[in-house]
């Protein structure tokens, strides 16, 4: 598993999801904290291309040997690409949560929504508060 880290160029959702915003699109995934809490991830089925994600709502499930967890959309938008490689190698989410372990790319419904997310400092503070 990867070492604990939180890249500075990402936006964070308090439910332990990240977004890498690039223009009117964003790549989404779960944070190091989320994958560590779950343990070894053994199943992930991404949503189909075209699925509409709604900020703060679950868009997929991620499963470890013992637990099932919902993946929350940090931003709203339409899925334009899904990481199909995670079907055969879901452990990639543990190994590289911000890189190869990305889950979906979306076309943002409202690029202004990203302003409401946490930056890395605020997310780290959120973790320290023990949520």
């Amino acid at each position: 598993m990867a070492e604990e880290h939180y890249p500075e160029d990402l936006k964070y959702h308090p439910e332990h999801d990240w977004a890498r915003v690039e223009g009117d699109a964003a790549t989404l995934g779960i944070t190091w904290f989320a994958q560590d809490a779950l343990g070894e991830i053994v199943f992930f089925e991404p949503p189909a291309v075209g699925t509409q994600l709604i900020k703060d709502s679950a868009y997929a499930e991620v499963e470890s040997v013992k637990a099932v967890s919902e993946v929350i959309a940090p931003l709203s938008g339409e899925v334009i690409e899904a990481n199909g490689a995670l079907g055969d190698a879901p452990e990639t989410i543990n190994d590289d949560p911000y890189g190869e372990g990305w889950m979906v790319k979306i076309k943002l419904a409202d690029p202004g929504e990203a302003d409401g997310l946490l930056d890395v400092t605020a997310y780290r503070q959120h973790l320290e508060e023990g949520v």
């Binding site: 598993m1 343990g39 070894e40 053994v42 040997v65 013992k66």
Partner: peptide
């Protein structure tokens, strides 16, 4: 202990 450092698998 539900698991150790190396994990369940």
């Amino acid at each position: 202990p539900v698991q150790y450092a190396e994990g369940i698998k």
